[in-house]
């Protein structure tokens, strides 16, 4: 009798287990069609790629995200491509990056929009075709204290800001390049004061060329925060010129040039 009751209790406990508990054990990449499609049946490894996000964000409109993918130059299979997903956003795509080993390191900083508490997933594919994954849950506790105004942003694409190390630390030594461009990154999900949805308008493409060779190309989605910020590493071997280029989905473009000087490495 006691045994039966015990069984019954076990069964009930199992049936009542919240769905969330079950799904939480599943890695994020398994929960997202877009991620599974890209992986094409491969299972990503979990080492060699890190993401850093605040554990709790008080402002989902602009959550700092850092990706740490390690060295590119001396690696046998450097990371070639990175994709970022926010599983709880209406559109889970956040950012796509194609990297050239000339960057030196696969380290990036940006700011993204998170609609609600959710898991952020970063997938990377290296030169051997192997996949890496890293994920982190973020609690978004939007404080009413920090609510942004809903005024429509009607600014066109503004002038870009760029900071490059001057000089870079040494030949082949990575230094951080920071970029920011004024742009509303209108998601198309937002209502204007008249109650009508504000038309979507985002920057889609960003690229960095060193002396004519593309070293980084990025695909921004609506979850990249307004005034997209992207910092990356660059490891130039010699003096040269860096060209940065942005294009939004209306076809409007901006570019910026910066002289690259390489220090003596001392």
């Amino acid at each position: 009798m006691g045994w039966t009751l015990h069984r019954l209790a076990m069964l009930l406990a199992f049936l009542l287990l919240p769905a969330a508990v079950v799904t939480a054990e599943k890695p994020a990449w398994q929960q997202l069609d877009a991620a599974r499609d890209w992986l094409g049946g491969e299972e990503p490894a979990s080492g060699g790629l890190r993401i850093e996000l605040p554990l709790v964000s008080e402002e989902g409109m602009s959550v700092p995200l850092e990706i740490r993918g390690g060295e590119l130059g001396n690696s046998e299979a450097p990371i070639r491509e990175i994709r970022v997903y926010a599983l709880g956003n209406p559109d889970p795509d956040v950012l796509g990056l194609r990297l050239d080993p000339a960057l030196g390191r696969a380290d990036f900083s940006t700011r993204i929009r998170l609609d609600e508490s959710q898991t952020v997933l970063v997938l990377a594919r290296d030169a051997s075709g192997r996949f890496l994954a890293a994920e982190q849950p973020v609690r978004v506790a939007n404080s009413g204290c920090l609510a942004r105004s809903d005024e429509p942003v009607d600014a066109p694409m503004g002038a870009p800001r760029v900071a490059v190390p001057d000089p870079f630390p040494g030949a082949g030594e990575p230094g951080e390049v920071r970029t920011l461009i004024l742009h509303p990154m209108e998601t198309g999900f937002r209502e204007g004061p008249d109650g009508k949805p504000v038309a979507r308008r985002i920057i889609e493409d960003f690229s960095a060329e060193l002396d004519g060779e593309t070293v980084l190309s990025a695909r921004f989605h609506a979850a990249v925060s307004a005034n997209p910020y992207l910092a990356f590493r660059l490891a130039p071997r010699a003096d040269g010129e860096l060209r940065l280029h942005w294009r939004d989905e209306t076809g409007e473009e901006r570019e910026a040039y910066r002289e690259v000087r390489v220090g003596s490495g001392e």
């Binding site: 402002e59 409109m61 602009s62 404080s143 204290c145 920090l146 942004r148 105004s149 307004a226 005034n227």
Partner: peptide, 9 residues
């Protein structure tokens, strides 16, 4: 360091 702040408007 922020783009928005409390009671900004």
């Amino acid at each position: 360091a922020k783009d928005a702040f409390s009671k900004q408007a």
